[in-house]
Computed example of a mutant assay.
Amino acid sequence: MIFFYIDCSMSFSSSIDSIPYTSLSNLSGIPSIDVAGSSVVGPYNDIILTFGGSYGGSYGYQLIYTFDTKNSTWNSLTTYGILPPIRKGVRPVFSYGRLYAFGGFNNFNGAYYNSLDMLDFRFFNWTNITLSNAPSGRDGYVSALLSDGNILYLGGYVSGKTVGLDIVYLYDTNNNLWQNMSTAGTTPESRGYFTSVLNLKKNRLIIYGGESNRVYYHAAVPTLAVLDLSSNPFTWISQKVSGNFIPPHLLLHTANVVHNYMILAYAAVVSTAILIYGLSAFYKWYKVTGFSNKFVATP
């Protein structure tokens, strides 16, 4: 397993020329899991949690693992209550001491789950809060916690086919309610196993990559799209980008925001590059290449 972190204490700007990283691949207890969900949890946001996934082609293993970023230790987490079925393709969301895990897929029994399971971190107790009007079971979607307490769910696979991005599903964590919203604007192509990040300053959701067909890989277009969350209904808007580097299509990658940058790392399609996408007003791409003591960025 490859496990590392990037030191983001440095400032990101258009003059960026290197990013230091530290390998943690030699740590003991690293779980060997595939397509697991992950979330940053804890009162100080210093714990990385993994949920579900598959291990060696099976699902009979530990449901949750945690990584303590302060002590650099991996542990399995014992939980109680109504334990969720282990599945993959889930994007869990952490909010005010609770972890919400929706959907997922089990490729052994072919089940798509539309259950919503909540883990209370005070007692590490699971509760199933699935409602009759919950969205259909899916995996490979994206999720985001909005400032009003709603969790946004978008896209993914339902019964092996990608679903359109013209419908946004919202779960109200305050009132335990599901609702859906039709989006405005030019809708991007449907997709699964893509990523999203929130640009809180502009109240926008930025999605990247993914595939529009699971059987024969087809990159969803446009590769990057922006959903304006400040409008009602939410509106897809066009966004011009710059930079000499044209990023590849990515699938099963990761995306995180650091300052004004979205960092895309690793993928099922391209596994040798780390990409940096500027979320500033300039919307400029940077490519980070190499795997030595430093990554070298090329505009």
Rank of each mutant, 00 (worst) to 15 (best):
F123P: 01
S196N: 12
T66K: 11
L177T: 14
S13R: 04
I86C: 11
Y266V: 11
L224Q: 08
L227R: 01
F194A: 03
S95L: 15
G60M: 07
S95R: 12
D7I: 02
G210S: 03
N232P: 01
G192F: 00
R204A: 11
V40R: 08
L250S: 05
S76Y: 11
F295K: 05
Y261F: 12
G89C: 05
L131T: 11
M10G: 12
S38L: 08
Y112D: 06
F12S: 03
I167Q: 00
D228E: 10
P247M: 02
A144P: 05
P43F: 04
N176W: 05
V163E: 02
N75P: 04
I276D: 01
T186G: 00
Y261Q: 12
R122N: 15
I263P: 04
R191C: 00
F282W: 04
N174V: 11
V90H: 02
N26M: 10
S271I: 07
L24D: 09
T298K: 06
A219V: 05
H249L: 03
V90W: 03
S54H: 06
T127P: 00
N109V: 10
I263G: 03
T78G: 07
G103R: 00
S38G: 13
D46G: 06
L205T: 02
V270S: 07
Y61A: 13
A184D: 14
A273E: 15
A297L: 14
N128F: 02
Y261E: 12
D148L: 03
T186R: 01
D17I: 10
A101C: 15
S280W: 09
T235R: 03
F94D: 11
G160R: 02
L154M: 07
S15V: 12
I167W: 00
P188G: 02
R87C: 14
L279G: 13
F282E: 15
L24F: 05
S190C: 09
S196Y: 00
I129F: 06
A134F: 02
L198D: 04
T78K: 11
S72F: 14
P233I: 10
